[in-house]
Amino acid sequence: MAYDRYVAICRPLHYGTLLSSRACVQMAAGAWGSSLLNALLHTANTFSIPLCQGNAVGQFFCEIPHILKLSCSHSCLQEVGIVVITTCLILGCFMFIVLSYVQIFRAVLRIPSEQGRHKAFSMCLPHLAVVSLFVSTGMCAYLKPPSLSSPSLDVVVAVVYAVVPPAVNPLIYSLRNKELKDALRKVSVGQK
């Protein structure tokens, strides 16, 4: 999405060639392939560690930190390597998004008309909101200090991370829809 917005705003005359169906297939294959590789590495590592403290995880889905707590193996070198690979993938995607939006905002701020700037920003802000929501909830889920960790808090954070961004995603993107905006205005006026 960030690349799509970048091309649409910064290189509009080249949109058809830069985002051809072949380019879209290549980008989708790259995203799916890297995600599949990451999932396979974590799954293989999870099944290779011995569990000494049973196999019951206090979550509604198995997260790697909770599985590692059940392990009796103190050799976490494999997991550290996989976390480094995962971190590189995440940072690469994050930096690509950030650099795309820096270019977009630079181009938008050079647009002379207020209406043109508003149209360009309204095109980008929904995607930026979804990415920010996903990144912030993910950071809360995985980067919170162990001193704040409790079973109930871990469940709440995991639910927020897994449920809120996908649930809010359609709402955020539909706010660009004129009919939905008109309906929201009618409801807000009717409540006053």
Score class of each variant (00 low, 15 high):
124 C>F: 01
140 C>Y: 02
120 A>S: 05
11 R>M: 10
35 S>D: 10
160 V>C: 06
145 P>F: 09
104 I>K: 01
23 A>P: 06
45 N>Y: 08
111 I>C: 07
145 P>Q: 12
83 V>G: 00
21 S>Q: 15
153 L>P: 03
141 A>V: 01
59 Q>N: 12
185 R>G: 02
186 K>V: 14
47 F>S: 01
45 N>G: 13
145 P>T: 13
101 Y>P: 00
176 R>E: 11
42 H>N: 08
101 Y>M: 04
147 S>I: 05
180 L>W: 05
58 G>I: 00
62 C>E: 08
126 P>A: 10
112 P>C: 13
123 M>R: 03
21 S>R: 10
48 S>Y: 05
11 R>Y: 03
98 V>K: 07
181 K>W: 10
95 M>S: 14
120 A>E: 01
65 P>K: 06
103 Q>T: 06
45 N>K: 04
1 M>F: 11
32 W>N: 09
9 I>Q: 01
132 S>L: 15
128 L>I: 09
42 H>I: 03
79 E>N: 09
31 A>R: 11
97 I>R: 00
85 I>T: 08
158 A>D: 03
147 S>H: 04
29 A>M: 10
175 L>Q: 08
160 V>L: 13
104 I>V: 12
170 P>R: 02
117 R>T: 13
31 A>C: 12
164 V>I: 15
10 C>D: 00
134 F>N: 03
190 G>L: 14
118 H>E: 09
32 W>H: 11
54 G>D: 12
85 I>S: 00
109 L>Y: 11
50 P>L: 06
4 D>Y: 02
56 A>R: 13
136 S>N: 14
21 S>V: 14
175 L>W: 01
152 S>I: 12
17 T>I: 11
48 S>H: 12
170 P>E: 05
76 C>M: 12
185 R>Y: 12
80 V>S: 12
92 G>Q: 14
151 P>M: 04
70 L>N: 09
192 K>Y: 13
84 V>Y: 03
129 A>S: 13
121 F>H: 05
